[in-house]
């Protein structure tokens, strides 16, 4: 790689980075952890979930680490009281938006949202639960889509478009009414484009997409396989 080398500080420590990298990429290569939800190594970052927000010296507002490029001499703080407060509220907002009933979820114990709440010490929410009435799509022969558990991270949308090239998924409508949709709001099982590869299921951070027939706690996602595949494709290209 001929990219220009630059160095930045992350939580005080010097980290080597290359021009064009994001703060998150540089942090990971330098062995630093920044919490993320919508990010998945190997697919394009979108900066949607706002969990990876970091503070950069000289800039008042926090920046998303997954989409902000590194700059020479940058000093990044990944954990401050303000950021922790912010991340907690973000998780609380995700928890109240839909019906996350961890106790009866296929992904209980393997869910990134649940783990994020635990790591941030979220023991309750400060807002009223929304309790929306949402559907479950059981039309696909192998997989299930449960809107109750979806956090709209769009990992499935991106993995389907970028790695499988099928473009089955997208979000439709807007605001609180935003939903994941297959094709023209059809049933997943009716989708002409879906190859049934299951990449979206493995990429999904919660129990929103799961394999059929899994009972509570049985759905363990293998999103590292998505990242490995993306890496192989990158090497081939």
């Amino acid at each position: 790689m001929s990219q220009k080398k630059i160095s930045i500080r992350i939580d005080g420590a010097l980290v080597d980075a290359r021009e064009g990298q994001t703060i998150l990429q540089a942090a990971r290569e330098g062995g630093k952890t920044i919490p993320t939800l919508c990010d998945l190594d190997g697919i394009t970052p979108v900066g949607g979930c706002r969990i990876c927000m970091v503070e950069v010296e000289g800039i008042d507002r926090a920046l998303p680490a997954c989409t902000s490029p590194v700059q020479e001499g940058m000093s990044v703080k990944t954990t401050t009281p303000r950021l922790t407060q912010h991340r907690r509220l973000t998780v609380e907002l995700l928890l109240v938006e839909r019906n996350h009933i961890c106790a009866v979820c296929v992904s209980n114990g393997h869910c990134e949202l649940q783990t994020m709440a635990t790591n941030l010490g979220v023991s309750t929410v400060r807002l009223a639960y929304n309790f929306p009435k949402l559907e479950t799509d059981l039309s696909h022969p192998k997989y299930v889509l449960d809107h109750n558990r979806c956090i709209l991270c769009t990992r499935c949308v991106r993995v389907c478009a970028e790695l499988e090239g099928a473009h089955v998924w997208n979000l439709f409508s807007r605001g609180i009414n935003t939903r994941l949709t297959a094709d023209l709001n059809g049933k997943w099982g009716d989708s002409k484009g879906c190859t049934g590869c299951g990449k979206c299921v493995q990429a999904c951070p919660t129990g929103a997409l799961s394999e059929k027939g899994r009972a509570v706690e049985e759905m363990v996602k293998q999103n590292e396989r998505i990242s490995a595949l993306a890496q192989r494709r990158g090497a081939e290209a």
Binding site: L95, I101, P132
Partner: peptide, 19 residues
């Protein structure tokens, strides 16, 4: 003290809330 998910989040009893 809210003890357990039902007291804290509504949990399984709240699954009827859309009906």
């Amino acid at each position: 003290v809210s003890m357990g998910d039902c007291a804290v989040t509504g949990n399984v009893p709240a699954m009827r809330n859309g009906i």
